[in-house]
Structure formats: structure tokens, C-alpha cells
Amino acid sequence: LRLDGITQVDGILADLGVSSFQINTPERGFSFRFDADLDMRMDKKGKKDAASIINKYRVEDLQAVLGRYGEVRNAKSLAQAIVEARRNAPIKTTAKFLDIIGPWIRGDRNRYLAQVFQALRIEVNDEMGALEDFFKDAIDVLAPGGKLVVISYHSLEDRMTKNFMKTGNAEGKVEKDFYGHIHRPLKVITKKPVYPSEEELAKNTRARSAKLRIAEKK
């Protein structure tokens, strides 16, 4: 926007979903449906890929990634299994990784694998850091009365969005000025998230986890 000389806008729509094109491109390594190198970088110039996380992170760090970003219930056990397996040989492909994950799957297989791969993708691309940066920039460019609309697809994104719209920061911390006035740069429009209708889900099943929230800059 700055390059085009635009300093303020009346509305911002942020769809936080991952590109279906990237997910469905086997060689990118985003999906457990295809055997490929464990990459998952949105930007191919990035230095950190999924393989480096799986093969180099300490067990505590792996557990934290799986637990926080994927909400994997047995994150500790899975992290320990990964570290044990890589002692024999580096884990470089999705097929090899699935062999290791297999015995530790809990509940629905596809859901569990989606959570694990989501956690790695978020860590590889620092998606939460990018989201926080976006929130800060959005406040700067939104004109008073401007609307911020965010569509999120997993609980961590939605929690950060909800916190930001309520308090002005992704952590949800209540901040006050020198006089004790609470800092709230936005007015929440949607008290609860808006979910896709049955009609929309019939046309687009990938929208099933979508949540839409709206706020207005004061």
C-alpha cells in the first residue's frame, strides 16, 4: 500500500487459509496424501524446512510445536518417538515420517495427521509471527470506522484474532494508558464467530472449520 501511496483504507479482509494449490502440489511436502520431501516452505527461499525441524529440534521443542500449533494430545510421546527414530537415519520424506507417526495416531487418522502437518507448517513459516505483524500493520492503515474482517481456520488463529479485536494485541493483555484508560483500538462487531452455512459447506467442504470475525477501528 505504501508503495502505491495509500496510507489508509476503509476495510481489510484477511483469509488466513492456506492455498489449495500449494497443498495439492505433491513436491511442496504440505500434505500427507503424497510422498515427497519434507519441505512445507511457502517461500522456497526460506532456510528452514520441515525436515530440519524434525531432524534437528530438541525433543522439548518438538513437543512444544506439536502441542501448541497442532494441539496434538500425545505431543510428548510423538516427539520422543521422532527423536528416537532419527537416531537411525534422517527423516527426509513424508512416507518415512508417516511410518514413524503411525503407531502413535490417536482418534481419527486423517484429523490426527492434519494436526501434525499443520503444526510443522506453522513453525516452518512462522505463521503466528506473521499474523501478529499483520495485526499491527492493520491498525496503522485502517481509517477510523474502517472494518477488519478475518477468516481463520484453526483454534490458535481464532484465539489470536479474538484477543486482538478485544484488546488490541494477540495475547489478549489488557493495556492501559497513563491515566488508567483501557486501550481498545477496535470495536468488536461480531460477539461470536460467524460459521459457514450448510449451503456453503455443500459447495466447499474445506470451509467447514472457517470462523469469521469483524471489528471496526474506533
Rank of each mutant, 00 (worst) to 15 (best):
L3R: 15
D4W: 13
I6M: 07
T7N: 13
Q8A: 08
D10W: 08
I12N: 11
A14R: 05
L16K: 08
G17Y: 09
S19Q: 14
S20W: 10
F21I: 12
I23W: 14
R28H: 15
G29F: 10
G29K: 11
F30D: 13
F30P: 15
S31N: 13
R33Q: 15
F34K: 07
F34E: 09
D39V: 08
M40A: 05
R41K: 11
M42Q: 10
D43Y: 04
D43R: 02
G46L: 02
G46H: 04
K48W: 09
A50H: 11
N55T: 09
R58S: 12
R58T: 12
R58V: 06
D61Q: 14
D61E: 14
Q63L: 04
L66S: 01
G67R: 00
G67I: 01
R68K: 06
R68E: 04
R73N: 13
R73I: 12
R73F: 10
N74D: 04
L78G: 04
A79D: 02
A79Q: 00
Q80C: 00
Q80E: 09
A81I: 00
A81T: 05
I82L: 11
V83T: 15
V83G: 00
E84V: 03
A85Q: 01
N88H: 13
K92L: 13
K92N: 13
T93L: 08
T94L: 04
A95K: 15
A95N: 14
K96D: 14
F97K: 02
I100R: 05
G102M: 09
W104A: 01
R106T: 14
G107M: 09
R109N: 12
Q115G: 04
Q115R: 15
V116H: 01
V116R: 01
Q118D: 09
Q118R: 14
Q118I: 08
R121P: 14
E123T: 08
V124S: 02
M128N: 00
L131R: 03
L131H: 06
L131C: 04
E132M: 03
F135I: 09
F135G: 05
I139L: 13
I139C: 05
V141L: 10
V141H: 13
G145D: 07
K147W: 11
L148R: 10
L148D: 10
I151S: 04
Y153V: 06
R159D: 03
T161Y: 07
T161V: 14
T161A: 07
K162G: 02
N163M: 00
F164G: 00
F164I: 06
F164S: 00
M165A: 01
G168R: 06
N169S: 03
K176G: 03
K176A: 07
D177C: 03
F178E: 14
G180C: 04
H181E: 11
H181P: 07
I182G: 01
I182K: 12
R184W: 00
L186W: 07
K187M: 01
V188T: 04
V188D: 00
I189Y: 07
K191C: 02
K191I: 05
K191S: 08
P193A: 00
P193H: 03
P193C: 02
V194K: 12
V194W: 08
V194F: 08
Y195C: 02
Y195E: 06
P196V: 02
E200S: 02
L201R: 05
A202D: 11
A202E: 13
K203H: 11
N204W: 10
R208E: 09
S209P: 15
S209A: 07
A210P: 15
A210K: 12
L212H: 13
I214H: 15
I214V: 15
